[in-house]
Design a protein around this nucleic acid. Structure first.
Lengths: 152, 152
DNA sequence: TATTGTTATACTCTATAACTATA
DNA sequence: TATAGTTATAGAGTATAACAATA
């Protein structure tokens, strides 16, 4: 029987009373689980955000999608490149403005998204089943309030 | 009067119903606000986590602190280097194991932490005042449950 | 003049592998 | 053999600045 190293008992002190730290730990747990479940699709949370927004806003430009997600438009290039390489999304020339690209899901992308969102919702369920009664609604409301808080 | 570019109306679709996305947006908001408030201390959320854990667990090794925070021990090196350069934390040779370093707050670090935690708690208040009644306790509980969920 | 997509660049985080000194 | 700290390295993610094409 090999010697077992005992991890030290850690006092989390202030961290245990800070919502910011709880928020971070919960988000890390959520994203790790998401990545695990969606790795078979080759999809990360970031890629999913872009794909989902294009799905629900076909024809929007890269900059519009980037702004909606709070990303810089320069970061969109490699993301769209990757989704295009997966044949799930395509750039089309904009008819109204020749500077911009209109983004669309491909036919294959529509099928892909249908399967993907099913898996994402299963993942969501995995966490939602931890909640009782009206907790889900309360959490959703509060997280929206947190996100909306603009620091002066 | 300069021409005003009107941002397109975006339909957030599925994202609006996914707790994972709400969680991410809330956390980004929280951390941006934290960084803003604590920039005068030269402290990021990551640095604060280490400093706080050393404060409440004086004499622990780098690896113990790293494990408690879910980080790799290799990532601790530059963090501890930075906090040591700020004269708020110090490595001392461990008496029981000459391979490891015991971490402590310096005298200056104790004062620093006292001022820092005051600011951090003000920051926390800024978000907590968005909550009514027993919401804070519910959120804390739920986020702990989310964090504890281990994906098989 | 301003904006779109793009490239180049850089900085932070994070993770892995390998080294050394100790255990 | 295994572990602690370290180094080197590499991959994401994110942000800024500058450029060409277009508005």
């Amino acid at each position: 029987m090999p010697k077992q190293s005992v991890p030290p008992v850690i006092n989390y002190g202030d961290l245990d009373n800070l919502m910011g730290y709880k928020l971070r730990r919960a988000q890390v747990s959520f994203f790790e689980s998401f990545a695990q479940r969606c790795s078979k699709f080759g999809i990360t949370p970031g890629l999913f955000g872009v794909l989902s927004l294009v799905k629900h806003n076909p024809g929007q430009t890269q900059t519009a999608i980037a702004n909606a997600l709070g990303n810089d438009r320069s970061a969109m290039v490699s993301v769209v490149d990757r989704l295009e390489a997966m044949n799930v999304l395509e750039r089309k020339p904009s008819v109204s403005d020749r500077r911009s690209h209109a983004l669309f899901l491909t036919l294959e992308g529509e099928t892909f998204y249908t399967q993907l969102i099913e898996e994402v919702k299963k993942h969501e369920q995995q966490f939602m089943q931890l909640l009782a009664g009206d907790e889900a609604k309360i959490i959703a409301d509060v997280l929206d309030r947190f996100a909306a808080l603009k620091t002066s």
